[in-house]
Amino acid sequence: MANVLEVKDVYKHLGKREIIKGISFSVKEGEIFGFLGPNGAGKTTTIRMLVGLIAPNKGTISIMGHEIGKEREKALSSVGAVVENPELYTYLSGRENLMQIARIRKIPKGEVDKVVELVKLSDRINDKVKKYSLGMKQRLGLAAALLADPRLLILDEPTNGLDPTGIMEFREIVKHASKERNTAVFISSHILSEVQQLCDTVAFINDGKIQSVESITGGQIKNETETLVLVTREAKNCSEVLKQLDYVYEVSAEENVFTINAKEDSSPEIAATLVEKGIAIKEMYKKHSELEQRYMELVEGGKK
């Protein structure tokens, strides 16, 4: 499956403050990718870069092989987004809102009917938007984002303010849209349960850094990476060796205790390399955890 979105080594600072600190990830077609982290972790800044509102200071963002910095129009023509509260004309009906967009973008009228059905608004589409509940407005915003049949759908905290029924409906519609149209979906959230039940893959972000990217199957994390804890007396040498290994993605250390995020089942190679370099391992073990524990480990544990 082809990558629809590729983010490579992206940095962003606002003034002197570094907000995003070298993030990299990719989203494939038909994949629902969760971007999970607490408020202030850098999620909104990342989304603003993905939709071309602000530019990274370093690194590249490509959509369907087109880099936003160099081929902005081509890259963004493949994107549909629901960012915060969708901009809707409340004095018009739902259908009139969608028809306005269809006219501007030269989208056939038949597409409007298709997306209305997809987001389950057929029975209320001719009512004025001011009569809509928050959940219906979110679904109309989603319909607007899906009108041009985007290859990448970007959703920023899409269920904020929705009641449990609204959340469930929205989740099912997004799943259906992704699978039926083979659309890549990037969804930013701070709600664990939402990501767990909706996404195929989750990236944990905290303090502008991606702590880990992991797969979810049946609501459970399926690790393509593993977290190892390593204790050694030779911290400096150990750190230098670990950072040179391709299959080690992230290393953090507190005195002589290292937490290593590495490729799944790479612990034997890591141990062998360290021994070969003359670094004595006092203790080494693998951490096992589910999404909530991973979140606490990676995000809460990452707070200083």
Rank of each mutant, 00 (worst) to 15 (best):
K106F: 04
G59M: 09
L118A: 11
K128S: 10
G69L: 11
G34P: 05
P108G: 12
G30H: 02
V83T: 08
K109G: 04
P108L: 10
D113N: 15
D123K: 15
R72P: 06
P108W: 08
E67Q: 13
K114Y: 10
H66D: 08
A102M: 10
E73G: 06
E87H: 08
E29L: 12
Y89V: 10
K109T: 12
I47W: 00
K120F: 13
L36A: 04
G69K: 03
V116E: 00
E31V: 07
T45I: 06
V27S: 04
K43M: 06
V82E: 00
D113K: 11
G34I: 03
P86G: 08
A102H: 01
T90C: 11
I101H: 07
N39T: 10
V27N: 02
K43W: 04
F25C: 06
L76M: 11
L118M: 15
E111S: 14
V79E: 04
V112R: 03
F35T: 04
L98H: 05
A102W: 02
G65T: 05
V115R: 00
P38W: 08
S24R: 01
G42A: 09
P38C: 10
L88V: 11
M49Y: 02
A55W: 12
R105G: 01
I61L: 06
E87D: 14
V51C: 00
E117C: 12
I101Y: 11
I104W: 14
I54W: 03
F35P: 03
A81L: 00
K58F: 10
P56I: 01
S122D: 15
A55N: 14
K120L: 12
K74L: 08
N39C: 12
Y89Q: 12
R95H: 14
T44E: 05
V129G: 04
V116H: 01
V27M: 08
E96V: 08
Q100G: 08
R103V: 09
I23V: 14
L76G: 06
I63S: 02
S62H: 03
I68V: 08
K28R: 15
K114G: 03
K106Q: 15
V116N: 00
V129M: 09
N126W: 11
V51D: 02
I101P: 01
K128H: 13
P108F: 05
K106A: 15
A55C: 14
I107K: 01
P38G: 09
S62L: 03
L92Q: 13
R124D: 11
L53K: 04
P108R: 10
I125E: 01
L121M: 14
V112Y: 04
N85D: 15
E29H: 13
R48S: 06
G52Y: 04
V129A: 06
S122G: 14
M99W: 09
R95M: 10
R72I: 03
N97W: 11
S93D: 14
K58I: 00
E84C: 10
T46M: 07
F35D: 00
N126K: 14
V119W: 01
K130Q: 14
G37S: 10
S77L: 03
F33T: 08
H66W: 09
